[in-house]
Computed example of a mutant assay.
Amino acid sequence: MRLTFPDGETLADLGTYVARARSLEAEGAIRLQAVGGVLAAWVCVVPGQGLTGSGTVLGLRTMALAGAHDLDVTVALAAMGDRFARRSANGEAGTTLEVPPAEVSPRWAGVLPPRGGWEPVGTVRITDLLAAADDGIAEVAQGAPEGAGAAAVGMLRAQVWARDVLDAAGTPTGAPAGAGLAARALGFARAGDLRSVSVHRQGAWTRVSLPAGYVLSRGAQGMA
């Protein structure tokens, strides 16, 4: 399995994305969906709870490919990181990447959001998203003392990152705080950017469209 990119910069961009995702979860995974000349790369920022994956927060980065592709695999971020480290160590300058052969099956990869049917529900300022991320990171750190059980930490994270981001007037924007975490950690937005970005919804899913990627979050089943 291999992916061919139009230039080295695009391939390096994927490497940066993989490194950022690994900073969130070193043992995480990435789903690579390549159709025609476009690659969609999915990673999990916040794992969901229960059978429906409520609270799941996913990052999506799309990028161009050279030539036609047909690929849909989920592989370990560590294996992808090894590929890029080896390229760097060997001074490889090509634009083709060999995808790791061993696939993994994280639960989130089987509950991706729908492609169509999205309806606009509002906008959110990037500064408000990033502020929510900073507040959430601090709350999780303070509320999860050393030695806390995995279940307790997971519940706290789910509560914090599911909260609605508020605007300057204290009005809910429709975007969850987890979208801010993804925006900051994955490099989808920069501090100081004063723009507002769109928020869409489809069923239980919310999508925030950022300058360098998308964040998709799953709320409670049946959420309007």
Rank of each mutant, 00 (worst) to 15 (best):
D134F: 10
Q33F: 08
N90L: 12
G187Q: 08
G147Q: 00
Q159I: 10
M223P: 13
E92D: 15
M1A: 12
Q33K: 06
E119K: 15
G117H: 06
Y17G: 10
L11E: 03
D70L: 14
G187P: 06
P211N: 02
L11T: 02
A162C: 12
M63C: 13
D167T: 04
S209Y: 12
D72K: 06
V199G: 00
A21M: 11
G147L: 04
L97T: 01
V75G: 02
I30C: 07
P113L: 00
G67R: 01
A168Q: 14
V124L: 14
V45L: 08
T10D: 07
Q49C: 10
L39C: 06
A158M: 10
N90C: 14
T16C: 14
R22K: 13
D13P: 12
R115C: 08
L14W: 01
G59R: 00
S54C: 11
A85S: 15
S54H: 12
A144L: 08
G222R: 04
G59F: 02
G48E: 00
R86N: 15
A189W: 03
D70F: 08
V140S: 03
P145K: 02
A64D: 11
T127F: 11
L181F: 07
T123R: 15
W118R: 08
D128R: 04
L156D: 05
C44A: 14
R125A: 09
G8W: 02
G50F: 08
A109R: 00
D193F: 08
